[in-house]
């Protein structure tokens, strides 16, 4: 899903770069409120975790493989702004050190894989939490649905960018249907893995999951006496 150099024309790449820079600028300030002066080491370690999680390739069929995008996962685990920042840092490192994703397409990739998935994922997650019963058990399913929605939305935004600045004379409608169809499938995988990972963390350390924190704080300390 990493967009390479030359896929979108130069003006579109520069424009998405400006949007990405602005979003990262906002995220830098907001992440401070999510993590205070622990931001640098914690976001760095979470970024390393997102990178590691992306390394696992799943066979998608026809000889190709896909991997976790992790935007919604990071947003639920550490909050939307820190999550956005972590995925953006992962993309910068991949572009600069591993030639994965074009250097001029970095802005496009940050917008699609970082900004869109993290923010859409988090908005969907919060919306679901508002309607679902306030129990810790609902965090993982809500995260799964958020992840499922975030992937096709990213594909939709990509199709829009392609319609504006695409360099191949392929019908925009065709691109949209192909991208949406394909990414609904990818979204299912993303949803299952995200839901299971969030569920696993919630089961052991619910206090670490940003999306579960309001529910954990609401629990009261119980003092029980045990018969001797």
């Amino acid at each position: 899903m990493h967009v390479p150099d030359g896929f979108l024309d130069a003006p579109t790449s520069v424009a998405t770069g400006v949007v990405a820079a602005a979003a990262v600028g906002v995220a830098l300030r907001r992440a401070r409120t999510e993590l205070d002066d622990r931001t640098a080491p914690l976001a760095g370690l979470v970024a390393a975790f997102v990178f590691a999680a992306q390394m696992i390739n799943f066979p998608v069929g026809a000889g190709t493989s896909g991997h976790l995008m992790g935007g919604a996962l990071a947003a639920v685990l550490v909050g939307p702004w820190t999550g956005l920042l972590c995925v953006a840092v992962v993309l910068v490192v991949q572009a600069l050190f591993m030639a994965d994703g074009g250097i001029t397409a970095l802005g496009t990739n940050v917008v699609l894989i970082g900004v869109v998935t993290a923010l859409v994922g988090y908005v969907v997650f919060r919306g679901l939490q508002a309607v679902l019963p306030r129990r810790v058990g609902t965090v993982a399913p809500a995260a799964a649905i958020a992840a499922f929605v975030s992937v096709p939305v990213a594909a939709l935004v990509f199709s829009l960018l392609f319609a504006i600045g695409g360099t191949a004379p392929v019908d925009a409608g065709k691109v949209l249907t192909a991208m949406l169809g394909w990414h609904v499938l990818i979204g299912i995988g993303e949803a299952v893995v995200t839901g299971l990972v969030v569920g696993a963390v919630v089961a052991v350390r619910p206090d670490l999951v940003r999306g579960a924190r309001p529910l954990v704080a609401a629990r009261e300390l119980e003092i029980r006496t045990v018969a001797a």
């Binding site: 931001t39 760095g44 370690l45 970024a47 390393a48 590691a52 920042l85 972590c86 992962v90 490192v93």
Partner: peptide, 19 residues
């Protein structure tokens, strides 16, 4: 932004440990 570079440096520093 210095904070962004710091996050990147921590990521690179611990990338091999985590992977």
């Amino acid at each position: 932004p210095p904070l962004l570079v710091e996050i990147m440096s921590f990521m690179l520093r611990y990338l091999d440990v985590v992977t």
